[in-house]
Design a protein around this nucleic acid. Structure first.
Length: 229
DNA sequence: AAGGCGTCCAACCGCTTCTAA
DNA sequence: TTTAGAAGCGGTTGGACGCCT
């Protein structure tokens, strides 16, 4: 969804940590009017921030239903399993951990879980299929994007079937969320960050065990004509 | 007590994708 | 078909904090 161009903010945009006052302004605005157009949010809410910053603050901190506190063993197990399957697809991983944000999961991975999974990483390196990117002198990408199921090197060149979030839903489920409309008539669209999702992702209130996650993923891929080896 | 160092996390940056005009 | 602008995503950075010497 694309929103109409809005007036450019006249004030200089602020950076850095958010104040409680800014949080309150953003929360009030989003609760009342929704966020069909993030670039308009700071202007209308009277914030000296850019839309991107507001979106991030809302998703990572202000959004209702966010879990605070330490990750449970089960959550960590899920992250490890999914990371092994999907690589650094933090937004996909976060969809299996209700109340956790991609940023939070990413941080937790770099802080704790990465150290716990060195064997997995090494195994991935060894078993990585021969698809070395001939045209890339870009060592950065091959170092930082070292997952087995990733959009990196090989995947980019061979153009595998793209898997969008909508692919994980049935058509009915997708359209059900597409019809989500705020009380002011502003359509929020299929906002997967907030929408309680049925079916595959219906894990509200319960974290997937790694086995369940594996099974779900395999079933989902099979359903869409793809398989996980 | 104070300075150095490491860790964690919030937020920014830059790139890609999507879509309306 | 092209283009511009917005959203989304993942990598990176910087500051706050705690621990150690």
């Amino acid at each position: 969804m694309r929103c109409r161009p809005t007036e450019k903010p006249l004030m200089k945009q602020k950076k850095g940590l958010w104040s409680p006052d800014e949080d309150q302004k953003l929360r009030d605005y989003v609760m009342n009017y929704g966020y069909s157009c993030w670039s308009a949010v700071p202007v209308n809410a009277g914030l000296q921030r850019n839309g991107k910053s507001c979106r991030l603050r809302w998703i990572n901190y202000l959004r209702p239903g966010l879990k605070k506190g330490a990750f449970s063993m089960q959550e960590e197990e899920t992250i490890l399993t999914l990371h092994g399957l999907l690589g650094n697809k933090w937004s996909l991983i976060s969809q299996h951990l209700p109340g956790r944000t991609d940023n939070e999961i990413k941080n937790h991975w770099h802080s704790y879980l990465k150290k716990r999974a060195p064997k997995t990483e090494k195994l991935e390196e060894q078993t990585k299929p021969e698809c070395k990117n001939s045209n890339s002198g870009n060592t950065e990408s091959s170092i930082t994007r070292n997952s087995s199921f990733d959009s990196s090197d090989c995947a980019r060149n061979n153009k595998p079937p793209k898997i969008l979030f909508a692919d994980w839903l049935t058509l009915e489920e997708f359209h059900a969320h597409e019809n989500l409309v705020s009380k002011d008539g502003i359509s929020n669209g299929p906002n997967y960050q907030d929408a309680p999702v049925n079916g595959l992702l219906s894990n509200e209130g319960s974290t997937d065990s790694s086995e369940t996650v594996m099974r779900d993923l395999k079933e989902s891929f099979t359903l869409h004509g793809r398989t996980i080896a």
